[in-house]
Design a protein around this nucleic acid. Sequence first.
DNA 1: ATATCACTTAGAGTTGACTTTAAGTCAATA
DNA 2: TATTGACTTAAAGTCAACTCTAAGTGATAT
Lengths: 130, 130
Amino acid sequence: MRVGDEENMQISEVAQKFGLTQDTLRYYEREGLIGPIAKGDNGIRNYTENDLQRIQFVKCMRAAGLEISFLKRYIQLFDEGDETIKERREILVEQRKILKKKLDDMQEAYDRLNMKIDLYDKNILDKSLM
Amino acid sequence: MRVGDEENMQISEVAQKFGLTQDTLRYYEREGLIGPIAKGDNGIRNYTENDLQRIQFVKCMRAAGLEISFLKRYIQLFDEGDETIKERREILVEQRKILKKKLDDMQEAYDRLNMKIDLYDKNILDKSLM
DNA sequence: ATATCACTTAGAGTTGACTTTAAGTCAATA
DNA sequence: TATTGACTTAAAGTCAACTCTAAGTGATAT
């Protein structure tokens, strides 16, 4: 184990923990979604607890389909401090709206799939209808 | 108006009706998701009621993020007739599972956005947390 | 008749989000 | 000491799903 940084993780461990690839983690950093991650004398990334929290946030939002560009903007504002609070709130509300629409669309498709499967189970299929 | 086909629609009308572009409709057809759409003597597509139902199905599923390749496969099986019923049901169940996972991920992100916005409204922001 | 408009095709280009490649450093083990 | 493994970089490549371009046809309006 590396001495003097028992609490920090390196990229392979972080990738493992979140089910992301190392490439993706470096890509997110390049794009300004996380970090910049501090590096040791050897040039190797050392992820802090705070870094991990941001990655968790990004992962959750990406899993929901929020765009890299939005996350980039939000995190940028976040790091700029308190004077951006109003704008941050606004873009969160905007994203929530987009997400809500997608959730509704997906729920509709989900219900439709359920009904469809139900019809398959009951052997009552309309040959003209998908 | 075109004579003898009052009940059918041409591509611009269909595009309008579903909020898709003409390019997308032709692309879906090329990929085997809909049609092949019958064409008049002039070579222009004439969408039937049945075509519209399939487009509606495809649109719903695509809005939920189901892949073109799955839709292509499903529709292919559908057109092959009754001996594919078992397989069709199986792939529907598989897609439902994928969709459920996405719905859950999105619900999680949605809840998180809601909580976040709530904190912004109450002015209780933790400076270290996204 | 000439221009405009809606359509047609094949094929090339775009976008977002990774993912891979090539070439290299460094530390630990056989 | 040599090789293995984990890391580093910049840049090119990939993939899905469109989206656009170029070149053309055929019907209708001026």
